[in-house]
Amino acid sequence: MKKLAIILVLAVLPYVSNAQSNFDKYENMKDVTSMVMTSKMFKLLSKIDFESSDKETQQYLNLVENINNIKVFVTDNKEVSQKMRSDVDSYLKNSSLDELMRVKSDDGENIKFYVKPGSSEDYVKELFMYLEGNDNHDGPGTVILTITGNIDLKQVSKLANDLNIPGGKELKKVKKGN
């Protein structure tokens, strides 16, 4: 399941950005699968010459140009999950993130989305997702995803839904300010 989470995040690559240093300690921690993509990678992607008049491809390229980085941390270890929960609680308490939505799925996963306001109603500076899985379920245990940059919520939600990322269907229904 960890491989699937990483593959999904890689597929979301054109839509995401910068994680907080609060979570950097998980990057090299045992029992944590991590993925960190920096702004340099996104700049390289934005320079790829796509000769396409397809509107969706152009929207992806525009989004990539505005990404700072993506950080994803996944664990099935209960002790690490508890540490992550504590760090997420602390981060949310001390940040200027606004809750976007909460979802409790049929299989017991709790998914929470937070945003840092951006340049307009449809754009955010940070999209933060925290997923707490069900111990009796086959899905990921705990997932922290943070994306920073100039993020178009409409594009992120469409991609998340298309790729069946946890919470993607719910995110598609939400607009900033709801």
Rank of each mutant, 00 (worst) to 15 (best):
K2D: 10
K2H: 11
K2T: 13
K3C: 01
K3A: 08
I7K: 14
L8R: 14
V9C: 13
L10C: 11
V12D: 13
V12K: 15
P14W: 05
Y15S: 14
V16N: 10
N18K: 14
A19E: 08
S21H: 03
N22S: 10
F23K: 01
F23V: 00
F23R: 00
F23D: 06
D24A: 01
K25R: 09
Y26M: 02
Y26A: 04
M29N: 02
K30H: 13
V32S: 01
T33S: 09
T33L: 04
S34W: 00
M35T: 06
T38F: 00
S39Q: 10
K40A: 11
K40W: 03
K40H: 09
M41N: 11
F42Q: 05
K43Y: 01
K43D: 09
L44A: 10
L45C: 13
L45V: 07
S46F: 04
S46E: 10
K47I: 08
I48T: 11
D49L: 08
F50V: 15
F50Q: 12
S53V: 04
S53Q: 10
D54M: 00
K55A: 13
E56S: 14
Q58G: 03
Q59G: 03
Q59I: 09
Q59D: 11
E65D: 12
E65Q: 15
E65R: 15
N66W: 02
N68S: 12
I70H: 03
K71M: 04
K71P: 02
V72N: 02
F73H: 05
F73C: 04
N77W: 02
V80A: 00
Q82N: 02
K83C: 00
M84H: 02
R85Y: 03
R85N: 06
S90D: 08
S96F: 07
L97T: 14
D98S: 14
E99Y: 00
L100M: 02
L100T: 05
M101P: 04
V103H: 04
K104A: 07
S105R: 07
D106M: 12
D107K: 15
D107C: 08
D107M: 12
G108E: 00
G108F: 08
E109D: 07
N110P: 07
K112L: 06
V115F: 09
K116M: 08
P117G: 06
P117D: 09
S119K: 14
S120N: 15
E121H: 06
Y123N: 02
E126D: 12
E126T: 15
F128E: 01
F128R: 06
F128V: 06
M129I: 09
Y130D: 03
Y130L: 03
Y130Q: 01
L131N: 05
E132I: 03
E132L: 04
G133P: 00
N134A: 07
N134I: 08
D135A: 14
D135E: 15
G139F: 08
V143Y: 01
I144L: 03
L145W: 07
L145V: 05
T146A: 11
I147S: 10
G149L: 00
N150A: 08
D152A: 14
D152G: 10
K154N: 11
K154T: 09
S157H: 03
K158P: 00
L159R: 15
N161C: 06
D162C: 07
L163N: 09
N164H: 13
G167S: 10
G167V: 05
G168L: 06
K169I: 02
E170P: 07
E170H: 06
L171P: 12
K175L: 10
K176A: 14
K176M: 13
G177R: 06
N178L: 05
